[in-house]
């Protein structure tokens, strides 16, 4: 059975990196980029954890990646698949694999970003589905 696009728990928006959710609302996955050392990092911070520079901007990434690891929570009222997805551009991010048969998910599988609503009119957040 294929899962549906879920409505997920609402995050509390971190003001210093609110851009992340504004971009998600426009269908973009924006990852924090350091202009000093050129590295991407996630979760986004107000400074670069690699070189301690605060000269940062955002890079809209392709949204393509591969499943690094995952686990299906079978005992949840609606089973769901949490996953680490390694983006084509480098960083690995925590997310869900959605709109998929939960028994068909595999490490190494190609996935692409989608965006799910959150509860109580919260911001959209990135999730991933099988790459077309």
């Amino acid at each position: 059975m294929t899962t549906e696009l879920p409505t997920l728990p609402n995050p509390e928006i971190t003001p210093s990196v609110a851009h992340f959710w504004e971009a998600a609302g426009e269908g973009k996955l924006d990852i924090r980029h350091c202009r000093s050392c050129n590295e991407l990092h996630h979760y986004p911070r107000s400074f670069c954890p690699f070189c301690y520079s605060d000269d940062l901007d955002w890079q809209t990434v392709s949204g393509k990646g591969t499943v690094y690891s995952f686990s299906v929570m079978r005992r949840a009222p609606v089973p769901f698949a949490i996953a680490y997805v390694t983006l084509e551009e480098g960083p690995t991010i925590l997310s869900h694999i959605v709109r998929i048969d939960l028994d068909d998910i595999a490490i190494g599988q190609k996935v692409q970003v989608a965006f799910a609503d959150t509860q109580d009119d919260g911001p959209k957040v990135p999730v991933f589905e099988a790459a077309s």
Binding site: L8, N10, P11, E12, Y43, P44, F80, I82, I93, S95
Partner: peptide
Amino acid sequence: LAFEHPYS
């Protein structure tokens, strides 16, 4: 937490 809580 804002980047993990939505994903349970």
